[in-house]
Design a protein around this nucleic acid. Structure first.
Length: 234
DNA sequence: CGCCAGGCCGTGT
DNA sequence: ACACGGCATGGC
């Protein structure tokens, strides 16, 4: 019963992906930049507008801190100043330092070596770092390290709830991160394994695209390409 | 001026 | 388990 409804939810997420792909086209997100820059962006964008992150990244670029070695050298106080535009500097600056420290301590400063770890163990490792929660860990795994994991962000939660795409498990007040991630996995379970990472990549990128445009905290869903589902699924 | 942004974490029920 | 507020800064 609940099982069947979850299957339906997965199908709705899959349909949402097709609808968004038709409306926005392929996003090919983040791969253009270096994996390390992707990681910095994943930290800096936490509860922060991407526009502000861009300025921080530019500051880091000018300071030569867009590489593990560059960031490792830079003093904490200077790092705080460089990332000031994206806020939460007292948390994010030490968090970035902690990541680089782990990278050197356990992987000789090599992201390739880090990426070679099995997905589950690596995810656990990342979650132990300060300032890394579910979403940041998954974003790093998917967009910087090439692991096929879904990323479930606040936009996806809002879209899923507002459009009635998911059914809340009995006894739960709201859909959890893990449940959303599982549903996303199921949504693409029928696709070839080799293309799974690319699909998760596009799905999250499209979610953010539509989320920014139509699904902010206080936003109404006017003009949203998914608006038709609001009626058909309720 | 007030709300909000591609979360995370400590604390309190 | 879950709610709630703080965290910093800047765009709109």
């Amino acid at each position: 019963m609940n099982q069947r409804r979850q299957l339906d939810a997965s199908k709705r997420l899959r349909k949402m992906h097709e609808d968004l792909l038709r409306a926005y086209g392929p996003q090919h997100w983040w791969p253009a930049k270096t994996p390390f820059e992707v990681i910095l962006g994943a930290y800096l964008t936490q509860n922060t507008a991407w526009k502000a992150v861009e300025r921080s990244l530019e500051n880091l670029r000018l300071a030569g801190a867009l590489t593990p070695e560059g960031l490792r050298r830079i003093p904490l106080a200077k790092l705080r100043r460089l990332i000031r535009p994206s806020g939460f500097i007292m948390r994010k600056a030490p968090a970035l330092k902690a990541f680089v420290a782990l990278l050197y301590k356990e992987f000789g400063g090599s992201l390739e070596a880090m990426a070679a770890m099995p997905t589950a163990a690596l995810r656990q490792r990342l979650l132990e770092l300060p300032g890394v929660g579910d979403e940041t860990a998954d974003a790093i795994l998917l967009y910087a390290l090439g692991h096929a994991v879904p990323v479930a962000d606040e936009y996806l939660r809002r879209i899923a709830e507002r459009h009635g795409l998911v059914v809340l498990p009995a006894g739960r007040a709201k859909i959890s991160y893990d449940d959303l991630a599982d549903l996303t996995r199921r949504a693409f379970a029928g696709d070839a394994e080799e293309s799974r990472a690319q699909l998760f990549n596009e799905f999250h990128a499209l979610t953010v695209a539509v989320g920014k445009a139509h699904c902010g905290r206080a936003a109404r869903c006017e003009g949203c390409p998914l608006a038709a589902d609001l009626k058909s699924n309720s």
